[in-house]
Design a protein around this nucleic acid. Structure first.
Length: 890
RNA sequence: GGGCGCUUAGCUCAGUUGGUUAGAGCACUACGUUUACACCGUAGGGGUCAGGGGUUCGAGUCCCUUAGCGCCCACCA
């Protein structure tokens, strides 16, 4: 809860420890330690839901390194979190680590030089052969280990990674409650993922199906639509002849001649007159003697290739469609390892075709099989001309480097609206109920949900992940009965079906007739990540916490995982709790390198953040991040970090000055608005009230950039003009004049520190500690009303007018190329009528600040005089004195 | 092919419901050491607001159109 507000209370601040020399060095470590020691960011579990602002922090992928893009987007969240905390909300700001899944597996393989062999037993004394060698370990040199040993290594390595990540986040100043952490592989998360799955299963939302689907041959796992990436891939068109019974040739074009042995039909568009005579007849392939029908289907495109397509099981998604809709036979020849089947398929006729397959194709990769088929086609004159080079778009697994194949397998799915219009409509409605920042990101969600063409495939044939919590009976015949899965009780979660027996069975019954087998597949990492708001808020584990934090307020995340993380989270929350998981989504843009390319590991242009933080300071890097609006891609710009550093140092110096002029060490500073009596001081507070209003309104609209901008603009004006104006009065004025200036300076410093606190947590906290109790980050967000009261009827325009008059006088000296200390013996200013009163009212400060030693004459500027950048104030005549004599160098 | 965003000074970006002569910082130039700050201060130069058309008394802002850049989705014969 906020500790104090300026509104109706006079604050008496004791200035305790203003250093002689200020510095940014070491602030990160100092304040991280004190915040931890003081539990500054601990979540108060007594707060009610209305008093809580809860954040579904993205759990970073633990395997790998954080890059500057992470610093960028996590800063956006932290700035908002700190603002919300200061407005009096209790911020629930946990941190998770996404350590389950393929990235960890790959990292462990490379880091320790091991690979999983499911046949090996667990070795409790296993020591990895390599550890963190810098050179890549060849796959052939990797040592086979049991799954359990492998998982242990995963846990060991991610624990080390997570420690490093936490250190970086602390250094950056994330106001996370470090007592609220989770891992997506920890027992709570596994239990939550399995519980949610079992409930999906019980409601019929999770189901298994044996169907053709996208398959990565490198990782040997099924892949979901959301993990696809379309890439250009070089290929060749081959013109291949099929033979009619009378020997006449029908030419088709294909980029995948190696699939000739899997052909099921030739298909053309029903309106295509070229092939009208062929529909209903059969043709035979030139190599294997497979007789296939020529069929019509509207999905065939007349202007593609020859207009007649070779349909194989399965070359692409269209093949699946034709196979389904035309009831074609299944003739799969691609295996899960991406090679052609080792046995000659039954549908290939004995004879030369069978011999060709057995000798030239069996067990070959698609690449070498293609070459063999092309040679054979040439030899029997069934290929027209040379293959024609083409660049085609092909689906890849986003983490893979070989084109996906289509393989038939038994997999688990969860409904996501891809096959159910009512559910799709409900999920689109959820998207429309969510407040998106920026709003246009909603469209990406709508595009994605609108374009789904299947349910969410959640099973993966991998090792390090959350197990799918089911077993299957083994029938007396020895066959596995997949249709009647055995499920565990929720109380027993998490379970590992590959090492635990289901209730009512014992381990000896594993794999034997009458016994059971465990599901070996694990869940896709998104099946767990989609539950982060539930995992973090204690769903079914800590109902008290859950009631205080869920549905959450904010999902901050990157734009590229709207279709995965954001969408899947909406799906799970909708199915499980019939609600949105959060009310706001804040989408950060990408970081572009100086060549305006997206920064990513695969491009090798990643900048590691710690060096940047150490070089420029965390506040400076945060300033850079906070200068970019949500949803907008930003350039990595060290120039902006330098500006941030300059600002942070300026905050230290200006604060040192204000507190020094207030009496310095040991003095008491009364922040009593009634003591502010001078017009200029009140005008400054009025301007500050405007800034507080603007910054607050901006933050409420999730526009941290605008909030920073108005604060920063005010602060520089405050330093350059206001502070200069009041120096003379503060040093040499009478008691009332001096008190007015000092009090106004104190009130302004107090508000400015709080306005900057979300973006510059370290310097503001450092300065706060010089004269205030507690943490600035638990202080109340400034309110305009109190400042307005102090300002009385003064307007911020008065300060602007006098600042312009001051600039006009400075210009005289600057153009004369003399020191600012040079006295002005006499000067006449032309002032527009509407500014005259303001300039007149503050002319004493003006005269002192600009060292006007003689008459200052103000005349009214003509009504039609142009308004330049100084508001129309111009110098009519002036006379400068002698520049002061430079003091002798000491 | 469909969609979203962007294009303003050499660079990075503001520019609110259309309203005086389009702003800031960096960089650049000149000057200046001033009882907070040289990691400083003061002042200055620098822009056909991507191109074209339209609406309007008035357009950086609204509409149409063209081009370029980035991204999302679709496209695999």
């Amino acid at each position: 809860m906020a500790q104090y507000g300026l509104m109706n209370t006079t604050v008496r601040a004791l200035i305790s420890q203003v250093p002689d020399r200020v510095s940014l060095d070491g602030l990160e470590t100092t304040w991280d330690q004190r915040w931890t020691a003081n539990s500054t960011f601990s979540f108060d579990r007594t707060a009610t839901r209305e008093q809580v602002y809860s954040i579904d922090t993205p759990p970073p992928t633990a395997s790998g390194s954080l890059h500057i893009g992470h610093v960028f987007s996590y800063t956006h969240t932290d700035v908002l979190a700190r603002y919300k905390r200061m407005t009096g909300l209790e911020v629930f700001y946990p941190m998770g680590w996404d350590d389950n899944g393929l990235p960890t597996e790959r990292r462990v393989q490379n880091y320790y030089g091991v690979r999983v062999d499911l046949t090996l037993p667990y070795d409790p004394d296993f020591t990895p052969p390599f550890e963190g060698t810098t050179k890549a370990i060849k796959a052939a040199d990797q040592v086979p280990v049991s799954r359990r040993n492998f998982v242990e290594l995963c846990e060991r390595l991610t624990a080390e990674d997570e420690k490093q990540f936490e250190d970086l986040w602390r250094y950056l100043g994330l106001s996370v409650d470090w007592k609220q952490t989770y891992q997506t592989i920890d027992p709570n998360a596994r239990a939550a993922a399995q519980r949610a799955f079992l409930r999906n299963l019980a409601r019929g939302e999770a189901y298994q199906a044996e169907a053709p689907g996208l398959w990565d041959v490198t990782f040997q796992t099924a892949v979901a639509q959301a993990e696809l990436e379309s890439r250009e891939y070089p290929g060749f068109f081959h013109k291949v002849a099929f033979l009619r019974p009378d020997g006449e040739k029908v030419w088709i074009e294909t980029t995948r001649p190696e699939l000739l042995g899997a052909v099921c039909a030739l298909i053309a568009h029903p309106d295509d007159e070229r092939y009208a005579g062929l529909f209903g007849t059969t043709v035979t392939d030139p190599l294997f003697g497979i007789e296939v029908p020529v069929l019509a289907h509207a999905a065939a495109e007349m202007d593609k290739g020859a207009g007649i397509a070779m349909c194989c099981t399965f070359g692409d998604q269209t093949d699946i469609q034709w196979w389904r809709e035309l009831n074609l036979p299944t003739r799969s020849i691609i295996q899960r390892d991406g090679r052609l089947t080792r046995e000659t398929p039954a549908w290939i006729a004995d004879g030369p075709g069978a011999a060709l397959y057995a000798e030239g194709l069996a067990g070959k990769t698609t690449f070498s099989a293609r070459a063999a088929v092309v040679d054979a086609l040439r030899a029997c004159d069934a290929m027209d001309g040379e293959p024609v080079k083409t660049l085609r778009n092909t689906n890849f697994f986003e983490k893979g480097d070989k084109p996906l194949e289509i393989v038939t397998s038994r997999q688990w799915y969860i409904s996501n609206g891809g096959r159910d219009e009512a559910l799709r409509a409900a999920l689109l409605k959820r998207g429309s109920e969510l407040a998106w920042h920026p709003d246009f990101m909603r469209v990406r969600y709508e595009n994605w949900v609108g374009g789904l063409h299947g349910d969410w495939l959640i099973s993966r044939q991998r090792f390090f992940g959350v197990a799918i919590p089911v077993w299957y009976p083994v029938l007396p015949s020895g066959e596995v009965d997949h249709d009647h899965p055995i499920v565990p009780s929720e109380a027993s979660l998490p379970v590992d079906p590959t090492s635990e027996a289901p209730a009512g069975f014992d381990e000896a019954q594993r794999g034997v007739p009458g016994g059971f087998v465990g599901e070996a597949d694990v869940m896709d990492t998104w099946a767990t990540s989609s539950l982060t708001p539930l995992i973090a808020s204690g769903w079914e584990r800590d109902e008290d916490l859950f009631a205080r934090t869920y549905p959450m307020d904010l999902r901050p995340q990157a734009q590229d995982i709207i279709r995965t993380w954001l969408f899947s989270t909406v799906v799970r929350s909708h199915l499980e709790l019939d609600t949105l998981p959060w009310t706001h989504a804040a989408i950060s843009g990408f970081i572009l390198d100086p060549d305006r390319k997206k920064m990513s590991k695969s491009k090798g242009n990643v900048v590691t953040p710690m060096g940047m933080l150490e070089q420029h300071s965390s506040d400076a890097v945060r300033y850079w991040a906070a200068s970019a609006r949500l949803g907008v891609d930003a350039a990595l710009d060290e120039g902006v970090m330098k500006i941030g550093r300059r600002l942070a140092i300026k905050v230290l110096n200006a604060s040192k000055f204000v507190l020094g002029i207030a009496g310095g060490q040991g003095a008491a500073l009364e922040l009593d608005p009634a003591l502010v009596t001078e017009v200029l001081d009140r005008a400054m507070l009025a301007a500050l009230a405007d800034v507080v209003e603007a910054a607050t309104a901006a933050f409420e609209k999730y526009d941290h950039t605008r909030a920073l901008e108005v604060t920063e603009t005010f602060f520089w004006m405050f330093c350059d003009n206001y502070v200069e104006f009041v120096k003379d009065r503060a040093y040499h004025g009478d008691e009332a004049e001096r008190t007015s200036a000092v009090t106004a300076l104190g009130i302004a410093l107090d508000a400015v520190l709080r306005l900057f606190a979300p973006v510059l947590p370290f310097v503001t906290e450092e300065v706060w500690s010089w004269w205030r109790e507690g943490s600035v980050h638990r202080a109340a967000w400034p309110e305009a009303a109190g400042l307005r009261d102090a300002a009385g009827d003064a307007s911020g325009d008065v300060l602007a007018a006098s600042s312009n008059a001051l600039a006009a006088l400075r210009k005289i000296k600057s153009e004369a190329k003399v020191s600012m200390k040079t006295p002005i013996l006499s000067v006449e200013l032309a002032v527009p009528a509407d500014l005259m009163e303001a300039v007149r009212a503050t002319q004493a400060d003006l005269i002192a600040t600009a060292t006007v030693t003689g008459p200052l004459v103000l005349t009214e500027a003509p009504a039609d005089a142009p308004r330049d950048s100084l508001g129309g104030i111009t110098v009519v005549a002036s006379k400068l004195g002698e520049p002061p004599v430079k003091p002798a160098r000491k």
